[in-house]
């Protein structure tokens, strides 16, 4: 395993009670790269994200963040170490205002040269959030909540961002906006693991693609290989 990966994990197994959901999943993402994690409904994508973020404690395997072993860390410590989650369904703090959502997650003095995103940086990415900064977050539209979920993850000063279906349920125009943001995050040096159902969206953004099916990695290649051969994705994702 090369040590220059931003995030790498190997032999990740995860369980819900007795059901064994992830089977020896191994991946790595280099600094400033986007890895798309694709798979059908119920394939185990969210399980994988939550296991990495420490929310699912019933797991085995080794997780390295910038070469540092975070496998045994609590969710709080994983976040402070520079791995941030944009969860499926957004899960912003509904009764807090936009401003407060950012304030509670902020890491004020991030260590080892990580970038501290200020409120102004976030409002620069998402001008709409600035207009709504004193609004209760739970009353905003789905697109605005998604922007807030991304902003909230950024103020924790991450090196690696886990984005679980950030375009789910959004209008096409907002989807395009989110795509633009993901591109800018990569340009800012972040690594992203992007879980997606929108295949075209994911293939356009991603550098690498990993496909999982029933909790196992079944295919792995540069995004260009999948773009050149659409049938290759169909095999694992198409409806049979």
């Amino acid at each position: 395993m090369p040590s220059d990966a931003a995030l790498s994990f190997s032999a990740l197994n995860a369980f819900y009670g007795d059901s064994h959901i992830l089977h020896d999943v191994s991946l790595e993402v280099a600094p400033g790269r986007i890895l798309a994690l694709l798979g059908r409904n119920g394939a185990g994508k969210t399980t994988c994200m939550n296991a990495l973020a420490g929310l699912l404690t019933s797991r085995t395997g080794r997780i390295l963040l910038n070469g540092r072993d975070i496998s045994a860390f609590s969710p709080e410590a994983i976040c402070r170490a520079g791995l941030a989650l944009v969860p499926q369904g957004r899960r912003i703090f509904r009764s807090l205002s936009v401003e407060e959502n950012l304030a509670v997650a902020r890491c004020p003095r991030p260590p080892d040269g990580r970038v501290a995103w200020t409120d102004e940086d976030i409002y620069g990415l998402f001008p709409r959030l600035k207009e709504r900064r004193r609004h209760p977050a739970g009353l905003m539209s789905g697109g605005e909540q998604q922007m807030l979920a991304i902003g909230r993850a950024l103020v924790t000063a991450p090196r690696v961002l886990l984005m679980d279906e950030p375009t789910e349920g959004l209008a096409p125009q907002i989807v395009a906006e989110v795509g633009g943001i993901v591109g800018r995050l990569r340009a800012a040096g972040l690594s992203v693991i992007l879980v997606e159902q929108h295949m075209a969206f994911a293939l356009k953004l991603a550098d690498e693609v990993v496909v999982i099916s029933t909790g196992r990695v079944v295919d792995k290649a540069p995004a260009s290989a999948f773009q050149a051969d659409p049938a290759r994705l169909e095999e694992h994702l198409g409806v049979h």
Partner: peptide
């Protein structure tokens, strides 16, 4: 205060509060 907002965040979604680095 931010402390108060963190408490309210933990009440809203305890798991997500932890994932955002809040020492719930």
């Amino acid at each position: 205060t931010t402390l108060g907002a963190r408490i309210r965040a933990a009440v809203d979604d305890r798991e997500m509060a932890r994932a955002m680095g809040i020492p719930v």
